[in-house]
Design a protein around this nucleic acid. Structure first.
Lengths: 257, 257
DNA sequence: CGACTCTTTGAGTGACCTCAATGACGGTGG
DNA sequence: CCACCGTCATTGAGGTCACTCAAAGAGTCG
């Protein structure tokens, strides 16, 4: 890095921070791992040279690559708001990266805990999309549907909308197909399969999971992307309100997007 | 809303803001559209009752649903950092939402333009993932590959790594398959198809797009999710640096994740 | 010059698709 | 109360896209 020019309205603190980011550069060899899945999440990296990619290794032996990073890209934003990495990152070819800590970023937000929380919440919601991406890319229809239903089950449970392992679902099978990348006909067939295995009972707009654990087991569901608590630095930011029309749930946590 | 309790370290301003969010509630009927794709993006919504979903209507007549929103979820974070909506949002059943403006959120970040920029950058990067999701869900192999290559082409062009419509690509076909949800064998076949149509020329680790416009046309590529400028309120935050090893590009814009 | 990785091509299979018809349910109006 | 309608779900038949397995060609590296 020879120079650093900034446009706009950055404060002197901002500029100092940006300069500090350029300090720790690290040369990486081809294939070298920046971090593994489930590793502690405490830093970002800016790619200076070379390409990198983030990935998930799946139970079934396959792999889903989430993103390729080119020079100038920031790696690791995806995990901000979680204590552990949701995906591994490795270099493709040789290159140089600039690591910097979450702590440095937090200083930027320092004045507003709410801003930090909104940022973290936005990132956490992205985790849901990422999870869906993995299922679209590398899982069969019955796994996509099972995952979809189980995720819904957990989210509804959080807001107190699950009763006796069952919940109300106003979505048509065609809409589920549009979400899961399946034809409505095949969604129906897939429901039939899950019903015959005793995993899902469906009656009109009501779904019951007689054995949620078995369903979770089927797809090796890892719920950390949904209900893991925020790292201590960001904690205590849930917006708890009690909506008038809300069915007797204990409260309502606001989760982004 | 009867009450609003907050834990943690929120400032009085934060609390005032949160209270103000509860003001404008709006009752929605089933199927009602909150906003269309490409509409101006200037507000969020918190879902109080009912379910909603965000979607993309595709050129080929199909539809991809991105996410279902349950009570307590925030809608619209995905577009923060863009001037127009990347996806439409509609209610599934009857419900109540609380709209609030981006402006209110910006006040939270007010003290730090850099914090705003990082937030916006994180959200913009999510747009890339969303776009990939759409292709995994609803597009054939040759469309996925064409889209992947064209997106790469645009991103590399931004950092000055494209020369004569060609660029260096250190990725194996197996890795592309892992990104696109295809087997390595089928990636190879798909390359053959694109080559025979004169859209892609590949020689080892170098790719040339003889006619980028034709490729973009094939997949109706809308580049707004990549290169649309930030809304005025957030503008001027690109971090321009000149990396030592960077091939003679004019500079390097930092884009998140 | 081998050993290795990556790519290409062929053959056969399977998952999911489309098209089409029927069934189940709910709402509406006579 | 019942006939009618529209929407949604189910089931069958046949087709296609992408998969797996397998083998051979092409570069690259030591």
């Amino acid at each position: 890095m020879r120079g650093l020019s900034l446009q706009g309205v950055l404060t002197p603190e901002d500029k100092a921070l940006l300069l500090s980011l350029q300090l720790n550069t690290r040369r990486m060899s081809a294939g070298e791992v920046l971090w593994h899945e489930d590793a502690d999440a405490d830093l970002f990296c800016v790619v200076k040279e070379g390409w990198a990619y983030s990935y998930r290794n799946l139970e079934n032996g396959s792999k889903q690559i989430l993103k390729f990073y080119l020079p100038g890209d920031i790696i690791g934003m995806r995990d901000f708001g979680f204590s552990r990495r949701l995906a591994g990152v490795a270099m493709i070819n040789e290159g140089v990266v600039c690591p910097f800590s979450y702590q440095q970023l937090l200083e930027l937000f320092g004045s507003s805990a709410l801003a930090v929380g909104i940022m973290a919440t936005a990132v956490r919601q992205q985790a849901l999309l990422t999870e869906r991406l993995v299922y679209l890319g590398r899982h069969a229809a019955h796994e996509r549907l099972a995952h979809f239903l189980y995720e819904l089950y957990l989210r509804l449970k959080r807001i107190g909308a699950v009763e006796d392992n069952g919940f109300f679902i106003p979505i048509s099978q065609e809409q589920m197909g549009d979400a899961l990348g399946l034809s409505p006909v095949h969604v129906s067939r897939t429901f039939t399969i899950l019903r015959k295995e005793g995993l899902v009972v469906r009656h009109r707009q009501h779904i019951t999971l007689p054995n949620p654990e078995a369903l979770a087991q089927l797809i090796k569901f890892d719920a950390s992307y949904i209900d893991e608590s925020l790292p201590s630095a960001l904690s205590e930011l849930s917006i708890v309100s009690r909506a008038s029309g809300n069915r007797r749930g204990p409260g309502m946590r606001t989760t982004a997007d």
